[in-house]
Design a protein around this nucleic acid. Sequence first.
DNA 1: GATGAATGAGACTTCATTCAT
DNA 2: TATGAATGAAGTCTCATTCAT
Lengths: 199, 199, 199, 199
Amino acid sequence: MNQIDSILGTREKILKAAVELFGDKGYHATSVQSICDLAGVTKGAFFHYFPNKNQILFEIHEFIIDRWNAECEKVLGNDDLDPSEKIYEITDVIIGQLIDYRQHGKILFRELNNIEGEMGEIVKAKRGHSEEIVATVIEAGMKKGDFKPNQNSLLLAKLYFGMCNWTLHWYRPEGDLTTQQMATIIGNAFIGGLMGVPR
Amino acid sequence: MNQIDSILGTREKILKAAVELFGDKGYHATSVQSICDLAGVTKGAFFHYFPNKNQILFEIHEFIIDRWNAECEKVLGNDDLDPSEKIYEITDVIIGQLIDYRQHGKILFRELNNIEGEMGEIVKAKRGHSEEIVATVIEAGMKKGDFKPNQNSLLLAKLYFGMCNWTLHWYRPEGDLTTQQMATIIGNAFIGGLMGVPR
Amino acid sequence: MNQIDSILGTREKILKAAVELFGDKGYHATSVQSICDLAGVTKGAFFHYFPNKNQILFEIHEFIIDRWNAECEKVLGNDDLDPSEKIYEITDVIIGQLIDYRQHGKILFRELNNIEGEMGEIVKAKRGHSEEIVATVIEAGMKKGDFKPNQNSLLLAKLYFGMCNWTLHWYRPEGDLTTQQMATIIGNAFIGGLMGVPR
Amino acid sequence: MNQIDSILGTREKILKAAVELFGDKGYHATSVQSICDLAGVTKGAFFHYFPNKNQILFEIHEFIIDRWNAECEKVLGNDDLDPSEKIYEITDVIIGQLIDYRQHGKILFRELNNIEGEMGEIVKAKRGHSEEIVATVIEAGMKKGDFKPNQNSLLLAKLYFGMCNWTLHWYRPEGDLTTQQMATIIGNAFIGGLMGVPR
DNA sequence: GATGAATGAGACTTCATTCAT
DNA sequence: TATGAATGAAGTCTCATTCAT
């Protein structure tokens, strides 16, 4: 157990281990036992803190969705930026978060439908909020004349998140491109496409 | 059992059922028994045709990857089209395939890492071929001057597939947009971005 | 494993062991493992034949209730007997069954409410039939003038079954009294009470 | 929590909750946690007052057996009554107690064998005392000539308790019959049987 | 080609109980 | 007097797989 783990409470250790294993192997392929082993905790402790394995999946989802919604909203609120700048900025944030919370992202995009009962509804209701935020930015850009008018902003926002989220499948920050460079490329691709951004 | 099922052999019925269940609930959440139930087949028959459950996952992956690679290559070979047209055309094919093989797609993007042993290597080696094809088209476009030069074509191809593949999470062909319209929008977004394609 | 067990099928061996253990220790105090151990069968086999532990409880109940209802009805149908004789006869049958199916009886009187869901309803609906049969005999005796008139026959039948069933708590056929003697005593007690039957 | 509960001490609240749950669901089906929940008490408190769950079962048994023995003895001591009157009187007491302590009765008749070790012996030794008391009354009645002579008094006492105790399975005081009426009917049935008591 | 009984490892979860505070 | 974190054994049940027929 490293220094960080030793100051985490039992509950946090369990969550941390679960994020790692759910992210790597998937929810159903991860046993409660393996979570406990990685967390250095007994199975009894696990069920002392969580009523069942599914509750953990719920908490992971809720944590990351709340966080990402909040991060996106922070950027949207900054009125010093024009729409294009906001796109670059939001992309920077999103890619950064995807790197920082890589496992959470993999879990979110893969296991959402495995959250049972009412908890599933709660999580699904929260999701999609960041797409609306990006759509709002696109609307502003179209109104301002920076972007081509009369485009379906929500649909474009979904395509945008496709580009961003998909990076989880291939982008490694240890490679040639820094996170910032990656974000810039995506921003360019989304704003100017293959034709490129003017200037 | 409908007419189509009745002329399928046992092996095909099993595969068909597995695609449905793996797609809906995931590989690990699908039991061999449930596959047999849906296929109307006994467990004995299952293991008569397949050495284990994982083999089915492998065959599903191999089938869809081979198919998609072939479809993409077909378009690339058509030399009557200029690069932009090829992008539109490929997008049309890809979106069409994603609709026709929705379950396969969900499986491919979620369960790839669950294929065990050598079979996993085989599948992973085949994957990525379509990205190379799209990258080739982008290269051609940059050379020809239609696209902004000096862009990382493979990386852009990956972003492109992000947009396309991600549609699985939200696009429903029963809705307002036809598959063709969807493909056009994606083509526009990829070529011209938010600024839009000039005429 | 004795000779009888060896010709029983797996399913029967499991049921036999379950009757023994449920009767001795109670349903909840009996583990599936202990049933399998006694039956000489693996846990896998258990769940091959029964979907869950509760199903066994249901089958035991259904078996014994059906049997006892049938036995009682057999006596009732014999029209050569007058009401008093029928009481003696039925008592003989009931006590005999309680001895032959001692464990079933203990289970029936103790675990009825542990049968879950619809199965519980089915069993409860069947129960009570033998009380009605005895009540019918009492009615006939009152009409004929052998028994005091205007008594609540169903209520008396319940008291009667109290006497009979309660013997499970104390009567041992290995002791001084044979089953037939026991039945006669109960018949006397029910017909003539402490005052005794006249000749 | 109602007013009564609020003046009960923690220990009493636990016992009260346990009686309710053991009576409704059975000893093994009742968890310590559920007792604590119903009692509004923590699990720590539970084990502060009781060394283990079984101890509670013992105390419930001891309480009700002591009480019922005492009640029966009170009647026996009243020498103004003749044997028949004593039977009616005792029945009244017993049925009354079965109503007032319904849950205790269900527990006593179902869980006696679940009391572990020496505690089980203690309880079993106390039980049966009330049967002896009733047998004594029967003996007196036979001697006096009120009842038919040469009957096995202890055995009849057991049949008598069968009638009484079995009422737990079906008699509801909210129904048509008052407790007193019920006791009279049982007294009649035990003394005069189906032939009825002579005036 | 197909069956279905049987297996055994391992899944999630419950539970009575202990113990430091 | 009372807490609540933690334990570990045991519980029910699932599952992929084998094998004799």
